[in-house]
Design a protein around this nucleic acid. Structure first.
Lengths: 231, 231
DNA sequence: ATTACTAAGCACCGAGTAA
DNA sequence: TTTACTCGGTGCTTAGTAA
């Protein structure tokens, strides 16, 4: 469990969510402590202190001006809210899979580099039951699928541990069993994503035993559907 | 805002969510205070106290036995979690509408009785811009749509206030602007739902200016889609 | 009007203990 | 083992105040 989850108390989470609902997720939002105090049903002092703490803990950026302050939830804050959202999705939508659509793109080929590293490849073989083709299928998601991507949080992933060599560390990743559906064919595969994904990331990478461009007859700009299954 | 939202503190909510994740939403779940303490990263005393409070406040049913306790989240507890879930959906899926499908049913005709009461009808005329046909179209939702129904929480409803006469009180209701799509026709309408809806309710009621069975040519067991729009 | 400090109070926490 | 009590300490909250 990331340390950030520990640093943020229950009250901090409630406050952060309230700020996000006020619009501080999408950009900077102007408010005063008494605004927030009203929403939290607490004193202005408490609102002030909560804002200070969230700032100190790195969940909030603040710019204090004479008649209030401009606040914006940081990436860390958004991650925390996403994690919470995933919990609730697990509660109320545990049976639902996630279906994402997008078009094939060449991407930047960096996925290929990472998955072929032995530290990852060894785990793929063990946890997925096959040795992936040394490259990733890159998909640019539609706008709606970008939003739905968050629903992956409700699905139990296969966790690929991070590791390190002499030079650097390599972060953990999640694998989600999926079916890739092209015009007239489909193949089992896995969506692979870094443990930490941002809200708004429109890119999806897929691995499979064989080269999916061949087995599915795909080329750039072809549309595919990725059905991620609940295990 | 319902008073229950005030009674449950931030820590209580965290605890309730944890219990739900453990399975106490679907039925009775056995656990001990030390189990819960571990998950909450707190002492067994705190776990014990939190369980007591949730019980007292009506969010939890408990049955204490010699080697632990059986717990189950109550309807009030589930409502509270649903409300929280709706907040998170509002954060991360504010642009998405909800599409529900089901089949026409005769229902029990009780919707007709309520909506024709002047206390409601007056508000419909003012807030929806039309005087509804004095009856509701009743739809039995598919299993998947029953789950998706929860997503209505992410949509800003038109709120119909509750009221009372000499004899009894009538609860508030939510209206959601929607398009009802039949085989070959569609009509603008509103989904109407009591403010407090249960998880698992498979029934949907729709009102419109004219009798939808006529304008859409519908009869029992016909399939319709209800597209609820984000305003 | 703001934000945020200080100080007093209260609630919550966990250790110890009982049943 | 359990649950849950008492009790002492800590930390959060609010009132008052400063800037």
């Amino acid at each position: 469990m990331p340390e950030t989850r520990r640093a943020l108390g229950a009250d901090g989470l409630v406050t952060l969510k309230e700020l996000a609902l006020l619009g501080a997720l999408d950009g900077t939002e102007k408010l005063s402590c008494s605004d927030l105090a009203g929403r939290l049903d607490a004193s202005t002092q408490t609102a002030s202190r909560r804002l200070q703490r969230l700032d100190e803990e790195g969940y909030l950026e603040r710019d204090i001006v004479s008649d209030g302050q401009w606040v914006e939830v940081t990436t860390a804050g958004e991650r925390r809210l996403q994690a919470e959202y995933a919990d609730y999705r697990r509660l109320f939508e545990r049976d639902a899979g996630v279906s994402l659509t997008g078009v094939i793109t060449s991407g930047m080929g960096e996925g290929r580099h990472y998955i072929t590293l032995s530290g990852y490849m060894r785990q793929f073989t063990e946890l997925l039951g096959y040795e992936p083709y040394p490259g990733t299928l890159n998909i640019d998601l539609t706008e709606e699928s970008v939003r739905r991507r968050a629903h992956l949080g409700a699905i139990e992933p296969i966790t690929i541990d991070g590791w390190e060599d002499e030079e650097r560390t390599y972060g953990p990743a999640y694998c989600y069993p999926a079916t890739i559906i092209a015009e007239d064919r489909y193949e089992p595969a896995h969506v692979i994503a870094p443990e930490r994904t941002h809200h708004g990331d429109d890119h999806l990478e897929v691995i499979a035993p064989d080269r999916l461009r061949d087995t599915l007859g795909l080329q750039d700009d072809d549309e595919v559907t990725v059905d991620v299954e609940q295990r």
